[in-house]
Every structure is written in C-alpha cells, then in structure tokens.
C-alpha cells in the first residue's frame, strides 16, 4: 500500500530532513510514526501527500509512483488519501454538514451521493445530532471528529493523521483513536504521526520511530521509544 525505497529529502545544503528511508506498509495496517520535532515525521507526511518531492529514492502509494507523477494527476491521487490535521482545519463559516459535504463537492460528486454519504459518515463518528452546528460551537474533540468524517467521506484507501490528538485532552484523544481504530478495522490503512506516548503504548500497534530524519526502529505491536 505504501512503499518508500531509499528516500531522501533535503531542503538545502544542510542535513537532510529525511535520509535513506525504507518503509513498507501493507493494506489494512495501523502504523504509528513517532519521534521528537525535527525528526522528519512531517516531511514524511508531506512526501506521501505529494506536497513535496523526494530528492532521491522511490515512493509508491496505492499503486501510484509519486516521483514520476505529473502535476495534473496529483489531485486525483490525493482522493485516495484522507488527511486529518492537529488543528482540524475546518471551514469556520460552514456547519458540520457543509464541512463534510465540501470534501465531496470539490471532487464533483453528485448531490444525491452527498446527501446519502454525509449523514452516514457523521453517524460513524457520532455527530449525527450536530449537523447544523458551526465549528466554533463544538468542542476540540468534536471538531476533530468532523475532520475525520471529512477525511472518510470519500472512502479513501489510506488515512493520514498528523498529530490528530495534539490539541486534545487525554480522554478525548482516546475517543479519537478509537474512531481511527474502527476505521482501520474495516480495512482502511491508517498512518498516525504522533508524539503522544500514552496512546502509542496503550494501543500496541506497529510503531516506526524516527530521529534526525532517519528511521531508527520499526516494531510490530511496539511502544514509544524516546529516540
């Protein structure tokens, strides 16, 4: 599903942000990528989103080779991914329903599909009763659930979550991770970038640890290592 072969990303003359990374993630896996800030986690996410191009090496995601992908193909490629951010990135002037529907509108889904899918995913994340609420009327956890619903609504192959619990209290963080685990159990590949030790240790999933742009460990049912 995700394959990185000897991938390096340099921004300038200095030390590369990602150095000779090799990573293979199978379909349906749940993977944590952990490490302190500056370890290369965000660069990895940006490379997978094709927001950045690797300096060298090969990246294949869901059968698409990113290093040879043309610019006009990028939009279609990103539809295979669902992205969740630490700061939720919701549209403040639109209600919950519209925020989720937005993801379908921008890829040109017909109105009938939107009316069917949006309530369905909002039910999945437990927000059926908040469809009309504006983001500012919701708690942090609820906003993140809207963001997950938006990532989910186009039924992506992979969910990429960049510090999804970074702005949330421990209890809400657990709820969010439970939702991501449910999504994973249905067969969607989930990659979570985090430095939340408690969550990583509690879930016992595969853990890829990064330090200074290098993958230093990769453990099945791993725990959080202070790299």
């Amino acid at each position: 599903m995700i394959d990185l072969v000897d991938v390096t990303k340099s921004y300038g003359e200095g030390k590369p942000a990602l150095s000779h990374a090799n990573l293979h993630i199978d379909k349906g896996e749940f993977v944590f990528v952990v490490g302190s800030s500056g370890s290369g986690k965000s660069t990895l996410i940006k490379l997978l989103l094709k927001e950045l191009n690797a300096t060298s090496g090969n990246i294949t995601v869901s059968g698409e080779r990113l290093e040879v992908m043309r610019h006009r193909r990028v939009a279609k490629y990103r539809r295979k991914l669902g992205v969740v951010f630490q700061d939720f990135r919701l549209l403040k002037d639109r209600n919950v329903y519209e925020n989720v529907a937005f993801a379908q509108r921008v890829i040109g889904r017909p109105g009938s599909a939107i009316r069917r899918m949006v309530p369905e995913v909002l039910k999945e994340v437990g927000l059926s009763n908040k469809m009309k609420s504006l983001p500012d009327e919701l708690s942090g956890g609820e906003q993140q659930r809207v963001a997950i619903a938006r990532a989910l609504v186009n039924r992506p192959d992979i969910i990429l979550a960049d510090e999804p619990t970074g702005n949330l209290d421990p209890q809400t963080s657990d709820e969010i991770m439970a939702i991501l685990e449910r999504i994973n159990n249905r067969g969607t590949t989930v990659l979570v970038v985090t430095h939340n030790k408690d969550i990583v240790n509690a879930m016992r999933k595969r853990v890829v640890t990064m330090k200074d742009g290098v993958i230093v460990s990769d453990e099945k049912e791993g725990v959080y290592h202070e790299a």
Binding site: F102, V106, R150
Partner: peptide
Amino acid sequence: EEIGIMKYIGATD
C-alpha cells in the same frame, strides 16, 4: 485556508 483544504482533499487546479 479553504484553498489549502481543497488541495489536500483532491480538488483539481
């Protein structure tokens, strides 16, 4: 911000 979100979601240019 909206444009950024659109790009991540897969909106064409």
